[in-house]
């Protein structure tokens, strides 16, 4: 019981530290806020007129995809933050303290939720300006945002593990794109998955990013009436499928990352 209290206390202290850093390093915050705005505007105006969504508007369709992509990209901040802690040597201070084993990682992943909340807020406002809207109940909309945040949280554990493996912040910033680009583009984020060539189509249909996008679209009421129901099981049950992935990612990567943190040798 005492151990649990300490674990919560320690994670809260680390999260407090990271939130202070968000305020002190505004350049990162600017990046977190500006790039989603750019994405919304680029896709809305560059592709908006060339991509047809039967019975609906592309901008309606697009926003959920950009939400999903942004929170997946955002997970690399978790990895970059940890890589920086290693590079700067502060991780050795933490590892020599009698703090809980999981605190540095739990605190980091929790504080990174703040980034995602902020960027979702900014994107939603930008979306509203370019003609996107929520046509469901407030509860459904809130569930949609919660699901995005939950998925982002789980994915940041993947990046936390990667961040502990790589030697520097630069490496994680580049390496994470190898994972996040295909994951967010070979999906139903920007075009309907049904339009993709066979192999990519299968990947897109089972891609968890597609599920979280589909779920968000449904919860926001952004699916035009008369759209044929999805044929693949993950997209028929997108909330359940997303939650399964959330559970799986945390169950696999949280223990891996904690173990790696404890055994990681000095990488300076």
């Amino acid at each position: 019981m005492k151990e649990l209290v300490y674990a919560v206390n320690d994670a809260a202290v680390i999260a407090w530290r990271n939130v202070i850093r968000i305020r002190r390093v505004p350049d990162l915050l600017v990046f977190v806020l500006i790039s989603p705005i750019m994405f919304v505007l680029l896709f809305a105006f560059v592709f908006g007129n060339s991509i047809d969504i039967p019975g609906g508007s592309y901008r309606e369709f697009l926003i959920a995809g950009i939400f999903a992509q942004t929170v997946v990209f955002g997970a690399s901040f978790t990895g970059a933050g940890l890589a920086e802690d290693i590079q700067k040597g502060i991780i050795n201070r933490f590892r020599a303290l009698p703090m809980s084993r999981s605190a540095l990682l739990v605190g980091r992943t929790l504080s990174d939720v703040v980034y995602n909340v902020l960027s979702l807020l900014v994107m939603a406002l930008t979306g509203l300006l370019v003609g996107w809207g929520i046509s469901s109940s407030a509860l459904d909309a809130a569930t949609g945002f919660a699901l995005l945040l939950l998925f982002a949280y789980a994915f940041s554990w993947v990046m936390a593990y990667v961040g502990l493996l790589v030697p520097s912040v630069e490496v994680i910033n580049n390496a994470s794109f190898i994972v996040t680009m295909p994951l967010t583009f070979v999906a139903n984020t920007f075009v309907p998955a049904e339009n993709l060539p066979p192999l990519l189509r299968t990947f897109a249909l089972w891609n968890p990013v597609s599920a979280v996008t589909q779920a968000t679209r449904e919860l926001f009421g952004n699916i035009p009436p008369g759209t044929p129901p999805p044929e693949a099981w993950p997209l028929q049950n997108p909330v359940l499928y997303t939650l399964l992935w959330v559970g799986l990612l945390i169950a696999v990567f949280a223990p891996l990352a904690v173990r790696r943190y404890r055994s990681s040798v000095d990488k300076r």
Partner: peptide
């Protein structure tokens, strides 16, 4: 350590306070 293990973006007080909380 031989490399000062501090958080650059925290103040001196915040660094020590954080370590105290983690003890």
């Amino acid at each position: 350590g031989q490399f000062a293990a501090l958080d650059e973006h925290l103040t001196g007080f915040e660094n020590l306070f954080m370590v105290g909380r983690l003890y």
